[in-house]
């Protein structure tokens, strides 16, 4: 051991070639560290570029009328995207109304009732696989289930697509949240004579609530930014929505539609909509993080 160490280190050796070897090794070490740091810092370039462009091209049109007016027709100036903001909120709301209860109840089953059962393992497996499914497939599913059955693009179809997208996130984060509740709490509840349901409703859920909300907010943030599930389920609309059963505008589809037209005003509006969307998604993410951190 001793001889190997001294030989490879070269410090205890008076042979000059050994010393140059040490210098070479140390130099190689520094160069590799430099490359690693440089490659990592390179990642900041796209992010800074995106944020810079969002501000530079998005801010000029940002005003109150953006939130209250309808999208301009092709080639026209002025207008806003109030209907798209409402559409996005409505469809994320529908998605949450479906996936929230379903996801949290599934998580309660797989963590509180029978964690080792086949059903619980199947839920975990399916949730993992659903996170890996392309978001556009959620749209294809909603197209087949709602649009083909009712014969019209609608906020319901878009909402269902978003629900499928959000479900796995909510299940997996809620399961983690429930796992984080100390089992001593459950035992204390049982010790006081609580039933399973009382222990879950009065002790486990209140304790896990902030962490569950973190998961829900993360799912909301992701769903709000998605375009692919909405593009042929909710489609788009130039007008204020009168019902949930008609084509509905959304921020993300507006960005997509306006970014591919040859009119500068529409493209500028796509940037403003992007700025609003990124601000909303970031806000949702930050809310998610702070809710969680307040617990600890």
């Amino acid at each position: 051991m001793d001889s190997i160490a001294s030989y490879s280190l070269g410090f205890f050796n008076n042979d000059p070639s050994e010393n140059t070897k040490v210098i070479a090794r140390s130099l190689k070490n520094r160069i590799l560290s430099g490359i690693c740091i440089a490659l990592s810092l390179l990642t900041m370039v796209p992010l800074i570029s995106i944020i810079f462009l969002l501000l530079k091209k998005g801010l000029p049109l940002l005003g109150l009328n953006i939130f209250t007016e309808l999208p301009p027709a092709a080639g026209m100036a002025g207008g806003g995207f109030g209907n798209a903001i409402i559409g996005t909120l409505a469809m994320v709301g529908i998605g949450l109304a479906i996936s929230g209860p379903a996801g949290i109840l599934s998580a309660i089953y797989i963590n509180e009732y029978s964690p080792a059962s086949r059903l619980a393992q199947a839920v975990r497996m399916v949730a993992k696989l659903l996170t890996g499914i392309p978001s556009i497939i959620c749209g294809v599913f909603a197209f087949a289930v709602v649009v083909m059955a009712t014969g019209t693009f609608s906020a319901y179809a878009g909402g269902l697509a978003l629900a499928v997208l959000m479900l796995p996130t909510i299940i997996l984060t809620s399961e983690q949240a429930l796992m984080g509740v100390q089992s001593a709490y459950r035992e204390a509840a049982y010790g006081l004579g609580a039933t399973r349901f009382q222990a879950i409703a009065r002790v486990v859920l209140p304790d896990a609530f902030p962490a569950i909300m973190t998961g829900v907010m993360l799912a909301v943030a992701r769903a709000a930014g998605e375009t692919a599930p909405l593009i042929f389920t909710a489609l788009f609309s130039q007008f204020w929505a009168k019902s949930l059963n008609e084509p509905t505008a959304s921020l993300s589809v507006l960005i997509y539609n306006f970014s591919t037209v040859p009119f500068p005003h529409q493209i500028a509006m796509a940037w403003t909509a992007s700025l609003v969307l990124v601000a909303f998604v970031t806000l949702a993410n930050i809310t998610a993080q702070t809710i969680f951190s307040r617990r600890h």
Partner: peptide
């Protein structure tokens, strides 16, 4: 009843993947 509700939700989750593939 709450357990049955949770079990139902879990079952729906598992069947969802199959349902997606079936519909497509």
């Amino acid at each position: 009843l709450f357990k049955i509700l949770c079990q139902g939700a879990a079952l729906v989750t598992v069947l969802l993947l199959g349902w997606i593939i079936y519909e497509i």
